[in-house]
């Protein structure tokens, strides 16, 4: 069994214990995901929010609903879906929710044939954060889920409640938008 598989199996066991209201298991899940969920919420919401309240709401929903989770192995996707819903609710409450028009920039397609190494990019964290903040909500959310949280296309589709085709399209345009921003920042 590989390291990844053994981690996944261990996590499934922790989720099963948490489902059975094992306090220690629930706190283990909180510790395991709190930083990533905070990062994800920050990417969606921007900086002008009380993240303690946002995180609290997400984990309270997890606590209340975990007994209804049918597939413990899908906990990660389920958790991100809750985080997504809470973050979008917060945006709606603040009336700042603006859905970007994905796919309305046909000229971008020809521009993204150049190489872009994500591993190299991750080495420059400041540039990644600054560039992500300048993308539209849908673009930065899909990039965060795909390349920073490591979710696959079907998992992202489930989190965002859309089709895999839509996810592919969003990633495509998000990458091109990010590349343009990166090139602009390097030119400066």
């Amino acid at each position: 069994m590989s390291q990844v598989e053994s981690d996944a199996a261990r996590e499934t066991l922790v989720v099963l214990r948490a489902k059975d209201r094992d306090e220690e298991a629930f706190h283990e899940l909180v510790r395991r995901y709190e930083r990533r969920i905070l990062y994800y919420s920050h990417r969606i919401l921007g900086s002008d929010f009380d993240f303690a309240d946002v995180l609290q709401e997400i984990w309270m929903k997890v606590f209340l609903r975990i007994t209804t989770l049918d597939a413990p192995e899908a906990f990660r996707v389920w958790l991100y879906k809750i985080a997504h819903d809470v973050a979008i609710d917060q945006l709606r409450k603040n009336r700042r929710y603006q859905v970007g028009h994905i796919g309305d920039t046909p000229t971008v397609e020809a521009e993204i044939s150049g190489g872009w190494n994500e591993r190299e990019l991750l080495e420059n964290a400041e540039v990644v954060h600054a560039t992500l903040d300048r993308l539209s909500l849908l673009h930065r959310e899909v990039l965060t889920l795909r390349f920073l949280e490591g979710l696959d296309l079907s998992e992202i589709a489930e989190v965002l409640s859309c089709s895999i085709g839509t996810v592919k399209s969003r990633i495509y345009y998000a990458k091109s938008a990010m590349r343009k921003l990166l090139e602009a920042s390097y030119d400066e």
């Binding site: 990062y39 993240f51 190494n117 990644v128 954060h129």
Partner: peptide, 21 residues
């Protein structure tokens, strides 16, 4: 873009450098 999952350590570093986190 390389679409394989990024290395966990690299991601941890990235999280560490996020202002809010």
């Amino acid at each position: 873009m390389n679409e394989s999952r990024p290395h966990p350590t690299r991601i941890e570093e990235l999280l560490e450098q996020d202002v809010v986190v």
